[in-house]
């Protein structure tokens, strides 16, 4: 591909109550094949998409949270999570699933994909993008 663009996927909605989170993830999966510079942003209720211990069995819905853990294999490794959004909801980074990728530059060492950022840092991240997809 001629040029690499910076793609940001903005996730502001909780999973399951609406389909946006699931179908956003489907875009991220397909988008990974295009080898662009991909970042995911989780803010507002979007942080609930990354909660540890999601169990959808009784709700009879597809638990897609595990898919986030597989994204590292598709070179999707930048999960920016807004600290203020977590705090407003009584959450900390420890409440989220551990999500890692293998860094081939460092002998496949496991590294965290989740990058906690402040609201100001999230604003700066948005300002660097070429394409911003909101769901």
């Amino acid at each position: 591909m001629a040029q690499k663009k910076k793609f940001l996927y903005v996730n502001r909605k909780a999973p399951y109550g609406t389909i946006y989170a699931l179908e956003a993830l489907e875009v991220v999966l397909i988008g990974a094949a295009f080898e662009q510079d991909v970042s995911l942003a989780f803010l507002d209720d979007g942080v609930f998409q990354l909660m540890a211990g999601q169990d959808t069995a009784a709700a009879s819905m597809k638990n897609f949270s595990r898919t986030f853990k597989a994204l590292g294999d598709y070179d999707v490794r930048k999960f920016y999570v807004e600290r203020e959004s977590l705090a407003e909801r009584g959450l900390t980074v420890e409440d989220l699933m551990p999500i890692t990728y293998e860094d081939e530059a460092e002998d496949y060492a496991e590294k965290p994909s989740i990058i906690p950022v402040s609201r100001a840092e999230m604003a700066a991240l948005i300002a660097q993008q070429d394409v911003v997809l909101s769901f």
Binding site: Y20, I126, Q129, D130, V132, S134, F135
Partner: peptide
């Protein structure tokens, strides 16, 4: 503007 962000 360089980009558009929709706050849906």
């Amino acid at each position: 503007h360089a980009r558009t962000v929709a706050w849906l």
